[in-house]
Design a protein around this nucleic acid. Structure first.
Length: 173
DNA sequence: GTAAGGATTGGC
DNA sequence: CCAATCCTTACT
């Protein structure tokens, strides 16, 4: 089967982030580099960020130049630099004008969102990249049926009650 | 213009 | 435990 048929499409991403985030576990992230080489990693940990009322979500501060892409319809990439050194990878989900995204926290053998960005060699040019069209990064369904477990999101203690929601999803070991 | 802080990591 | 490192946001 051509790889193209396995690529996750707009229909997959244009749903509620709380459906998309757990369903990304076990999917395959593909990164193709300029020199033609590509790498494939199974996604093993994600987190959902959902709407302006979610105080852990960057869109809690409203629609700004930084959060703009989160207000687009699902299927695009939202990347941002954290602590001046790590590019964190997110997939925008849902309908237009409702800000939501999935943070890719870990891949197989690459634990931690900062390490994910480093391994994939991300930078600001990935902001707004369309996962359904890009020739350098996309996601495929290779048919794994993983067991998933939930837990609280990491590093968002400032978000009050929103910090304790079970919006972190990971592959059951 | 200036200041504060961050969806992290690695080293001491 | 804490520095690194720079972008975004909020405020004087």
């Amino acid at each position: 089967m051509p790889a193209k048929l396995k690529r996750l499409n707009t229909k997959f991403f244009q749903r509620d982030v709380l459906e998309v985030a757990p369903q990304l576990i076990g999917k395959t992230l593909v990164r193709q580099f300029a020199h033609g080489q590509h790498v494939r990693f199974m996604i093993t940990e994600t987190e959902a960020y959902r709407g302006e009322e979610d105080l852990a979500c960057h869109a809690a501060k409203g629609r700004t130049s930084r959060t703009e892409v989160m207000y687009h319809r699902g299927g695009k990439i939202y990347v941002y630099l954290i602590y001046g050194q790590y590019w964190l990878l997110n997939f925008v989900t849902g309908e237009a004008d409702f800000p939501a995204a999935v943070l890719i926290r870990s891949l197989e053998n690459i634990t931690g969102p900062g390490r994910v960005g480093r391994a994939l060699q991300l930078n600001r040019t990935f902001y707004g990249e369309d996962l359904t069209l890009s020739d350098r990064i996309w996601v495929e369904d290779d048919g794994y049926l993983p067991e998933i477990e939930t837990s609280a999101r990491i590093g968002v203690d400032y978000a009050g009650d929103w910090a304790s929601l079970p919006w972190r999803f990971s592959l059951r070991k």
